[in-house]
Amino acid sequence: MNRQPLTIEVALGARSYPVWIGRGLLAEADRWRATLRGRHALVVSNTTVAPLYLQRVAAGLDGLAWSSWLLDDGETHKTYANAGRVLEALAALGATRDACVIALGGGVVGDLAGFAAACWMRGIDFMQMPTTLLAMVDSSVGGKTGVNLPAGKNLVGAFHQPRAVVADLDTLATLPPREYRAGLAEVVKGAAIGDPAFFAWLEEHADALVARDEAALAEAIARKVAFKAAVVARDETEQGERALLNFGHSFSHALETAGGYTALLHGEAVAVGMHLAARLSERLRMGTAADTTRLVRLLERLGLPTAIPVGMQAERLLELMRLDKKNTAGTLRLILWRGIGRAEIVADVPAPQVLAVLAENAR
């Protein structure tokens, strides 16, 4: 594979930024160090990732006043309290308004660090250094930051774009198989909502992706990032088109919350949520059974779950879905589809229809 990284630009005018995708990028400090504007940096990571990669980043921070702050690994730690602890770490560092928070880890680290950066002195720079496939293809791009509450996922947050995204493919070598498969769900989602040709490509290359074939993986990441970057450039704060990126997420966030953020990884919940959204689309006479079958078959070939976990009650899931941020005036507003590549926002979805789909797919 070519060692020269691929660069995808997220075009937001004066706030545009690059997404660099390649190998060995964490150690290429000359590239990402140039985006740091001040003399203070706080590296936020977790206890799994930091022993593997923090030293590579630290080598590039020589000469700066910097420190690190680590949280335990897992979605349960993406809390308002931990965001407060990151802010305290910034205070201890003496971080000024030109400081930068560097998020070294997966989606939990990126969301939490970005939210803290959005809050410190009403917003300072941050940089994404995603180390999971899911974070590389989704959460590190687009500026959504936030934390979870017991009532629901990502209910507290802010739009805050990074200065750069450094996606070092070498970090995927240490990614556990389950985490890797979870990232593939977000790749499928991008194709499912707006790129039928990419969906067909994924079907053709599913076995190579499962085997972590380097060329197939690099192409899948690049195509998904380019797709999301284009959507974000057109609709940064989710006033319209960007909401389509939440295909299946009303279901998946409810599943994650019902499972205490431990039963399913985010990507696994997205896989189940996409299946449920496709089934609901069928029920509402939008999508077809044939397209649902293609989606389920691809997800299962990639080793992803498609069924609601045992013990989750349909009524409870519907209750949690009512808290989703996309809803308006107490009505259910969901992202559904008319088939592969044709997602759309659907307002006033009848709750009994949603409940029926949940009940039919619960075990």
Rank of each mutant, 00 (worst) to 15 (best):
E238F: 08
A222V: 13
V210S: 05
A211G: 03
R212A: 00
T237R: 15
L209A: 02
E236V: 06
L217H: 05
A215I: 03
K228W: 14
E241L: 11
A206C: 04
R234H: 12
A208R: 03
L209G: 01
D235A: 07
R223Y: 15
A211S: 06
L217M: 15
L217A: 03
A230G: 14
A211T: 01
D207F: 00
A206Y: 03
D207S: 02
E214A: 07
R234N: 07
R234I: 02
R212N: 00
D213H: 12
I221M: 05
A226V: 11
Q239C: 03
E238W: 07
D235N: 09
E219A: 04
A226T: 13
A222Y: 14
A233M: 10
A233P: 05
Q239S: 08
E214H: 11
L209S: 03
A229Y: 14
K228E: 05
F227P: 02
Q239D: 06
R234E: 12
E238M: 10
A233F: 09
R223D: 06
V225N: 14
G240Q: 08
G240A: 12
D207R: 01
I221E: 03
L209K: 07
H205Q: 08
V232C: 04
R212Y: 01
H205E: 03
V210K: 03
A226C: 12
F227E: 02
A218N: 06
A220V: 05
A218Y: 12
A230I: 05
L217D: 00
V232S: 07
A233V: 03
A218R: 15
E241I: 08
A206N: 02
K224Q: 14
E219K: 02
V231N: 09
A222E: 15
A226P: 10
L217C: 06
